[in-house]
């Protein structure tokens, strides 16, 4: 015997609407959640099911809120989803008590609806997590890439830690923007703290140097470890006429000379003075 889908739905919705107290009590029992939380949810479901166009926006809003609140309390997303799913158990008892074929067929429809809502809480949870991770990644990028001013017209980026392609790109864009903002014609990219580079990262470094040149500024790369020099040569990456220096100090002194600053040889002078006195 087949039951028209429409009639089945109407029957289960009627059952849902007419047995509020019984449902809530059983739902609280099965899920172990607070009756207040469930009452709000029940009311929202009631409104949604009663509405002409089946608008579940309010229910979803409430579930999103619930999911966030419970995540803060330390519940796992499965706990929250299980809370929603347990409505099925409560409603099934009502449907079973009714016993009619409409009620049972309607229950299948209703339980699909509940499944969707349960999964929605899960999605909300992972979306919230994803956002936190993204925010933190960005913060980390910001933190780990300071562009510092070494001298009037000379800026430096001391890179520390493993460089991936995305991070290198962010650093390089930031460096170029700093050149514009500060009107600096010299930049030092110091990679003393970088344990290794791959082809992509080396390419990004190269492209930055070329881009800086197009803008009218000069870049020096300093602190290339022997292993990295080895890698770059082995990979066959052409560093061409790009200036490289062993240490940040060498790079700074080079940039100073290029920008017309003279450095007096302090150490030598002192030796000379002593010699005279002796």
């Amino acid at each position: 015997m087949t039951v028209p889908a429409e009639a089945a739905r109407r029957r289960i919705v009627d059952l849902f609407l007419s047995s509020e107290e019984r449902l809530l009590q059983r739902w609280t029992q099965v899920s172990g959640a607070s009756p207040d939380e469930l009452r709000d949810l029940y009311q929202a479901l009631r409104t949604a099911l009663g509405s002409e166009d089946g608008d579940f926006a309010d229910v979803r809003g409430l579930l999103a809120e619930l999911s966030r609140a419970r995540a803060r309390q330390g519940h796992t997303p499965s706990d929250t989803a299980r809370l929603v799913f347990s409505l099925k158990e409560a409603l099934y008892e009502v449907a079973e008590a009714d016993g009619g074929p409409e009620a049972l067929r309607g229950f299948v429809w209703f339980s699909r609806l509940v499944d969707d809502l349960g999964l929605f809480t899960f999605e909300t949870y992972s979306a919230a997590r994803e956002k936190i991770i993204l925010d933190q990644t960005e913060q980390l990028l910001e933190l780990s890439t300071p562009v510092v001013k070494l001298w009037e017209g000379i800026v430096a980026v001391p890179l520390v830690g493993t460089l991936d392609s995305a991070r290198t790109q962010v650093v390089m864009e930031k460096l170029l923007q700093t050149l514009v903002d500060t009107g600096s014609e010299h930049a030092v990219i110091d990679i003393t703290g970088v344990p290794a580079v791959d082809t992509q990262v080396a390419q990004h470094l190269l492209k930055t140097v070329v881009a800086a040149r197009l803008m009218g500024a000069e870049c020096v790369i300093s602190g290339i470890r022997p292993q990295i020099a080895h890698t770059i040569v082995t990979l066959g990456i052409e560093f061409g006429d790009i200036v490289t220096k062993a240490s940040l100090a060498d790079a700074l002194s080079y940039a100073l000379r290029r920008s017309g600053v003279e450095i007096a040889g302090a150490a030598k002078t002192r030796i000379a003075v002593r010699a005279e006195r002796a």
Partner: peptide, 10 residues
């Protein structure tokens, strides 16, 4: 030249 323009040209 803006940084984004320079990067794109490269």
């Amino acid at each position: 030249m803006r940084p984004a323009v320079a990067i794109t040209l490269v």
